[in-house]
Amino acid sequence: MNPVQAVLFIGVVLGLGAYLVAVLDRVFAGAPGGLRSGLMWPIRRTAFLLVQRRSETERPDAEAWALAPALLAALAAVGLTAVPFTPSLAVADVSAGIVLFGAAMIIVMVAVFLQGWSPNSIFPLIAAYRFAAMALSFGIPFSLVVLTTAIPAESLSVGAVVASQEGLWNVVRQPLGLPVYLVTGAAVAFWGPFRIPEGTDLAGGTALEASGPTLAVWRIARAGVLVTLSVMGAAIFLGGHLGPVLPGWAWTSVKSVALLTLFVWSGHAFARMRVERFVWFGWVILLPIALVDVFASGIVAL
C-alpha cells in the first residue's frame, strides 16, 4: 500500500468509526428523536463546533494545547496501522506490531496530560493528574494481556497473531485476556465507567476549557482511540479476518463493531468509578489476573 493510500485508508476507517461511536452513544443515551436524529447528530455537533468561537484562558501553554488533540488522533492512527484487515491488507504489519500498538496506547497518557495541563486551569489540571494515576494503574495489565496473545503465535506481529487463531480463537484459549483487555481498553480511552478525567465532578475535566475545532478534534480523536482498541481487540482475541463464508474485511468489521458497541454501551450501563477505587482495582484485581493470564498461556504453550 503506498503512503497516500495508507493515510486515506486509516483516515476513512477512523472517521467512520468515530461517526459510529457518536451515533451509538446518542442511541444508548436514549436521546429524543431515536436513530434518525442520532444519525444526524454527529454531523450537526461537528458543524457547530467548527464555527464555534474559541474560548481562551489566562496564559495557557498554547503550543501544547494545540498539540494534544492532534497527538491523540495520531496515536489512534498509529495503533491502527499494525492491524491486518484482510490477510493481505495491512498498512504496516511490522515484526513488532503489538509493541507498536502498546507504545501508541501508553502515549495516550501524554496527550491527556498535556490537554489537562496546558489550559492553565484548575479542573483540567486535576483531571490530568487523575489520568496519570489511572494510566500507571492500568498500563501494566493492559500491556500484559496484549503481549500474552503473542505467546501462541510465537511472534510479535499482529498478522502472525491472527494467523495463529486459525483453529481456536484467543478469546477461548486465553479466557482471562479479553475481559481484562475490555476493562483496561475502556480506561485507555477514558470511556465508560472510567471517564474519570472527563467526569462531571470536574465539570468536564480535560475538555472543560477546550472549545471550537480543537474540542471537535479532541472528541473525534478519543472516539478514534476507541475504534483502534476495538479493531485491535477483534484481531488479537476474536480471530480478526478469520471466519467462514464471508470475506475477511467483513469479519474484521463485524467483530470490531461488536467490540465497539460493547465499549460504548458500557458508558451507559455502569456508573463512573472514583479514581482511588480505580487505582486499587488496577493494582489489586487487574494486575494479578493479567499475571495469571500470562503464566497460564505460557504453560498451555509449553
Binding site: 511490522v94 509493541v99 502498546g102 502515549i107 496530560f113 496519570a132 494510566a135 500507571l136 498500563g139
Partner: peptide
C-alpha cells in the same frame, strides 16, 4: 531493531509523565 526502538518509546512515555509530575 524495531523491538528495541519501540520498547524505548514505550518506556519513556511512562517515565516522562512521572518525571513531569
Amino acid at each position: 531493531s524495531q523491538f528495541l526502538g519501540l520498547i524505548l518509546i514505550l518506556m519513556m512515555a511512562g517515565e516522562m509523565t512521572i518525571m513531569a509530575i
